[in-house]
């Protein structure tokens, strides 16, 4: 039988019981385990850390890293930093969005891909850049981006 959210989070939450200052690392670990932060996870965290759910949502929604909806199997992040912008990142984003038929920030209907825009990966010398599941692809073109997607 599939484990409940509470069971999956117990090791993370017990290790940080009562540690309010660990909220951000806890949210990161919970998202690492579940892929996103479902509502139920927020109340579990609230219970173990001694905070209210609204405080937790306040912090989680402040930071760009946290997601509240189920994510796709693969995460595609298209860099929109200055160097990438100057070198045509907007068109890379448009090409990927069109290819996958999904808006930036969204997830494809089959939950295969989530598409995000990110401020900067620090790979500016190889701009424009896109990152799929942590793997950085530099010196992208619109056709190059479509080709990279074919591997998934």
């Amino acid at each position: 039988m599939e484990k409940s959210i509470r069971e999956r989070l117990l090791p993370i939450l017990e290790a940080n019981q009562g540690h309010k200052e660990s909220l951000i690392p806890v949210l990161q670990k919970v998202q690492g385990e579940l892929g996103y932060l479902p509502e139920e996870s927020l109340s579990e965290i609230a219970h173990f850390l001694g905070l209210s759910s609204s405080e937790i949502f306040g912090v989680a929604s402040f930071y760009a890293q946290f997601r509240f909806e189920r994510q796709g199997e693969h995460t595609i992040k298209v860099c929109q930093g200055t160097a990438c912008h100057v070198r045509g990142a907007k068109r890379i984003m448009e090409a990927v969005a069109q290819e996958l038929n999904v808006e930036p920030g969204g997830t494809t209907a089959d939950y295969k891909f989530s598409l995000e825009q990110v401020a900067c990966f620090g790979c500016c010398a190889l701009a424009p850049v896109l990152v799929i599941d942590g793997q950085v692809h530099g010196r992208m073109t619109t056709s190059g981006a479509r080709k990279v997607l074919e591997d998934y």
Binding site: E21, I24, G58
Partner: peptide, 21 residues
């Protein structure tokens, strides 16, 4: 956790404390 404003020192310290930066 992805917030540009956390490069500002007082916001950065708020973030270390586990709060909104």
């Amino acid at each position: 956790a992805g917030a540009f404003v956390c490069g500002e020192e007082t916001a950065l310290m708020m973030s270390i404390e586990g709060k909104r930066g």
